Computed example of a mutant assay.
Amino acid sequence: MQIHNLSETNSILNTFIAEMRDVTIQKDAMRFRKNIERTGEILGYELSKTLTYNKANIASPLGTAQTNQIDDTIVLCSILRAGVPLHNGLLNYFDQAENAFISAYRHHKHNPESFEIIVEYLACPTLEGKTLILADPMLATGQSMVATYEALKPFGTPKSVHLVSVIGAQQGVDFVSKHFNSETHLWIATIDKDLNEKGYIVPGLGDAGDLAFGQKLQN
């Protein structure tokens, strides 16, 4: 898998990540959602550099301009619910993309330190020969990303696969690296070293879904 860790180069993205982590600023849910959205835009822009393009002639009021336009048919798939702001950021840039949505959540069977990933809802167009962008803001254990991709397989074989996350743990990055082929790209804003005993990223930022949309009842 090809890993693109944007934190390795300083940019305005540092500010958005810092605000999402900050225990005071992140209390502003609207700003938290906006920072995830803006991060999605930056990740989408960087991702766009690797897509295929064809030449097109565009008529302007004063003549004809030649330009290169994206030739890929993109399907943008996000994991509900935390993935919605990230999806919006990507969709701001890939506004012609087809869209897919999937619910994947942690189900704790016997204790809070062990869980399985449950996939319940899925809406998706055909993926055959298309470019799949699979977005989940938090890449913790990596199990949700893998489970989601497995659930998408009946919809066809994509031409290429791009994974997009805001913050990941190294353990999660290593896990998905083992389950996706070497042609898959991971676009991520920053990677933290650790997971705690409950599978949350440390230092991370907390529960992205709760911070964006409010606390939920636990399963």
Rank of each mutant, 00 (worst) to 15 (best):
G209R: 07
T64W: 11
T157K: 15
Y53N: 05
C77I: 11
D28C: 01
T9W: 02
Q66A: 13
R106P: 06
E128K: 14
E8P: 04
L139Q: 00
P61M: 08
K34C: 00
A169D: 09
A189F: 04
F155A: 10
H110S: 14
C124K: 02
L47T: 04
I118K: 15
Q171S: 11
H87K: 03
R38L: 13
A59E: 15
N35T: 04
G63H: 11
H185V: 06
N57M: 13
P112A: 07
E46N: 11
K27G: 11
P154T: 06
E8S: 10
G199F: 01
V176E: 09
D72N: 14
Q171D: 11
I42C: 03
G40N: 09
I167Q: 07
N35G: 02
T141N: 04
N54G: 12
G214N: 05
L211Y: 11
G40W: 00
S165D: 07
E37C: 07
K193I: 05
G83F: 05
S78R: 07
I118H: 14
S11T: 13
P85N: 03
A104M: 06
A56N: 11
T52Q: 15
L47I: 11
D194M: 10
H179I: 00
G63K: 06
C77G: 07
N5V: 11
E116T: 15
L211P: 01
I3D: 02
N10Q: 15
G204K: 05
K34M: 02
I3L: 12
M1P: 09
S165L: 04
A100I: 01
G44L: 05
S78H: 08
I79M: 08
A65N: 13
L163E: 08
I74C: 06
V146G: 06
Q96A: 12
L86E: 08
D210E: 13
M145L: 14
A123Q: 14
N196C: 10
T64K: 13
V161I: 15
D72P: 06
F155T: 01
A56S: 12
L186C: 05
T50W: 07
Q2H: 14
T64G: 02
L163M: 09
N14G: 01
D22T: 09
M1H: 02
N219D: 13
I17S: 06
A151C: 09
T52D: 15
